[in-house]
């Protein structure tokens, strides 16, 4: 079986600093892969190279066998790859429902049809489904900026699923979320993975969250992969312990 996401020999330097040096890994359909590593290990740079936000100096990224290296983020998204950002990124002036519709609208029909067609661009039903799924229904007409931090974080995550993407990359989904909300978020993500088979790649600092959510981990340190395997195994890996304690 071919991998859904294939990352090969990605390298990226800033000035003289090599942030990512030759990272390769595969992501299989339906798995939840965690990417961990100490601060400055190159996780975010790697993510941005995969997602077309940065252009890698070397290496290739393939999605479903198709070369997508350095493709612009909007093109990549329309090929079925969604993401969230480390910092919260909802549109505060739009309502929760509008945010969801926005996240899906570019994926249905032509641009011209969107100009002349319905205001919800045919995404209304899907938005309602997502509101129910993430339990945000009663807040649908609130401006996203007026929601609590945790609710915004849920909305942010929900937006990644509006386009029907098969691959979703989450950049620190648990950052700053309180404990009850955290359990909620994890449980919702697991449910989506189980019910629809969407594949996840998750960057996370919260070890407990990652260990519980992910089926497989890769560990980065100084721009290289130093360990790879199921959470229980990685936890015991001496190289990983060394990398974390060394910093």
């Amino acid at each position: 079986m071919t991998a859904l996401l294939e990352v090969r020999d990605i390298e990226k330097s800033f000035g003289g600093v090599r942030a990512v040096c030759g990272v390769s890994f595969d992501v299989r359909e339906g798995e939840i892969l965690g990417v961990i590593g100490p601060n400055g290990s190159g996780k975010s740079t790697l993510f941005n190279c995969i997602l077309g936000q940065l252009v890698p100096d070397r290496g290739t990224v393939r999605v479903n066998g198709r070369n997508v290296t350095a493709l612009r983020p909007s093109r990549l998204n329309r090929l079925g790859v969604s993401r969230t950002f480390q910092l919260l990124q909802v549109f505060p002036e739009l309502t929760a429902r509008e945010n969801l519709i926005l996240a899906g609208q570019e994926h249905r029909g032509s641009r011209l049809a969107r100009l002349f067609g319905a205001r919800d661009a045919g995404m209304g039903a899907e938005a309602d489904r997502m509101l129910d799924f993430f339990r945000l229904r009663r807040l649908e007409d609130e401006k996203a900026g007026s929601l609590s931090y945790g609710q915004q974080k849920l909305l942010d995550a929900a937006m990644a699923f509006m386009s029907g993407s098969r691959l979703v990359l989450l950049d620190e989904p648990a950052g700053g979320v309180n404990l009850t909300m955290l359990a909620d978020l994890r449980e919702r993500l697991e449910a989506i993975n189980r019910e629809t088979g969407v594949t996840f790649v998750v960057i996370e600092h919260n070890m407990e969250f990652v260990m519980a959510l992910c089926s497989r981990l890769i560990v980065l340190a100084e721009g290289r992969i130093i360990a790879e395997g199921p959470p229980a195994e990685v936890r015991r890996d001496p190289a990983v312990i060394e990398a974390y304690l060394g910093h």
Partner: peptide, 26 residues
């Protein structure tokens, strides 16, 4: 135009072009 989905895309690209781009908005 501004009340069609285009208008929503305009709002998005003005407020946060980076996020808009990641949602497939060209």
């Amino acid at each position: 135009i501004v009340r069609s989905p285009w208008g929503r895309a305009f709002t998005a690209l003005r407020e946060n072009p980076l996020r808009a781009e990641s949602l497939g908005i060209d």
